[in-house]
């Protein structure tokens, strides 16, 4: 009953949003140029570029595939650096934000967590670019701030939901709350925390790729450039690279999860 009501309400919301945005289905038909572009673009899907598509390539330009590998490497490394930083900041924040901690500490921490994660990493990037200027570290910090917040939020929720039988048993043996937490609650929640962190790593890779749109040397940078130069086969190369990267990470995380969590 209640769920049915939710479904109806959602449909109404969607319709209201549709009207509010002033959208028409006519707009869904691509512009004349757009149709041609879409055709060319989709046509290129079967032949991703393995070399530069441009007619003129400077002689000393590195091979296309080595550029691709370098972009892939940067994307992955920025994500790894950002994720490690997020774990470093997000884990203690998550512990401090869990229900075990007295309210006078927990509540300010939760506000901080909410502020960190409510601003998108691309907006952090815009602000940090203005404040710090272009640097690899700018990208890393831009990703790390909201990701720390998200990790902290989910970690504290996982800790709050973890079964407390072992924790209470240790308290029963005279262990202090901190000891019982470290020996009886944190290890219980750890597999889920690890699995979530790994999933966020996958998200960090995507974010790192997108940050290229702002000039960082990750996949997004090259994708944008190739697209603006109408080199669609190159664009597909970049797209396939991201999909492949995400697929590998997902396979990896699924395997880890299977032996870790279940």
């Amino acid at each position: 009953m209640r769920r049915g009501l939710v479904l109806v309400a959602l449909l109404v919301c969607g319709l209201a949003a549709f009207l509010a945005l002033g959208l028409g289905f006519g707009d869904l038909v691509p512009r004349p140029g757009g149709l041609k572009l879409a055709g060319e673009f989709l046509g290129a899907a079967w032949r991703p570029a393995l070399d530069y598509q441009a007619d003129f390539v400077p002689q000393n330009a590195p091979a296309f595939l080595s550029v691709a590998l370098a972009a892939l490497r940067k994307t992955l490394l920025f994500a790894a650096a950002a994720m490690s930083l997020s774990l470093l900041i997000g884990t203690p924040l998550g512990l401090l934000g869990s229900a075990l901690v007295p309210a006078r500490v927990r509540l300010p921490v939760r506000v901080l967590i909410a502020l960190m994660r409510s601003v998108h990493e691309l907006l952090w990037a815009v602000v940090l670019l203005a404040a710090l200027g272009m640097s690899s570290l700018t990208a890393v910090i831009a990703i790390a701030i909201p990701f720390s917040g998200t990790l902290a939020k989910v970690f504290s929720e996982l800790l709050d939901e973890a079964p407390t039988t072992a924790y209470r048993a240790l308290r029963g043996t005279g262990a202090t709350p901190l000891q019982a937490f470290l020996g009886g609650l944190l290890p219980v929640a750890a597999p889920d925390m690890g699995a979530y962190a790994f999933y966020r790593f996958e998200c960090a890779v995507r974010s790192s790729a997108v940050l290229g749109f702002f000039g960082f040397p990750t996949i997004g940078y090259y994708l944008k450039r190739s697209f603006e130069n109408l080199h669609y086969r190159e664009v597909w190369t970049w797209l396939y690279m991201i999909v492949l990267l995400v697929l590998v990470l997902e396979w990896w995380s699924a395997h880890l999860r299977r032996r870790f969590v279940a």
């Binding site: 002033g22 959208l23 707009d27 691509p30 512009r31 757009g34 673009f41 995507r206 790729a209 997108v210």
Partner: peptide, 27 residues
């Protein structure tokens, strides 16, 4: 997998070129 592997921002970037500047590409 293919749908979710490509980030929203890139989808929007590509769709914008095809559909023009309405809210549709973002949606």
């Amino acid at each position: 997998v293919a749908l979710r592997a490509v980030p929203e921002y890139m989808w929007a970037f590509l769709l914008l070129a095809v559909l023009g500047p309405t809210a549709w590409p973002a949606v």
